[in-house]
């Protein structure tokens, strides 16, 4: 249940930002979570509810935008969507593949008052 550690990080980032802008209440936090990460969105939402209790973010929603996995061949530069268990280029068969998206774990914005 490492989502609890990740939820705490999100909360810390949000609380710090809320203080910077002088917000009294955090209503929502928007995060980008890549498909190819060790984070399960439902677990993260559950943990976020737990860690925000008793803070100015209590009751805030965690809006998660899931970012699909995408890659690019390091040899022929062909962009493609890899099967999660097979990272090989559909064009040239190359196995040197760079992940271009799907590894995101970012806080994007939040709604405060």
């Amino acid at each position: 249940m490492h989502e609890i550690a990740i939820a705490r990080q999100i909360l810390e980032i949000a609380l710090k930002r809320a203080e910077q802008v002088g917000a009294k209440k955090i209503l929502a936090v928007r995060a980008k979570i890549g498909e190819f990460t060790a984070v399960v969105p439902e677990s993260l939402r559950f943990c976020f509810d737990a860690v925000t209790a008793g803070t100015i973010a209590e009751g805030a929603t965690l809006d998660i935008e899931e970012i699909p996995l995408a890659a690019e061949c390091a040899v022929c530069r062909k962009p493609f969507v890899p099967d999660k268990v097979r990272f090989s280029c559909p064009e040239c068969g190359g196995r040197e593949v760079e992940i271009t998206s799907g590894r995101e774990l970012d806080v994007e914005s939040m709604e405060v008052e």
Partner: peptide, 13 residues
């Protein structure tokens, strides 16, 4: 009020 944040969640780590 919408506030941009744009920070990696794992940044502190």
């Amino acid at each position: 009020m919408k506030v941009p944040v744009v920070e990696r969640i794992m940044r502190a780590n």
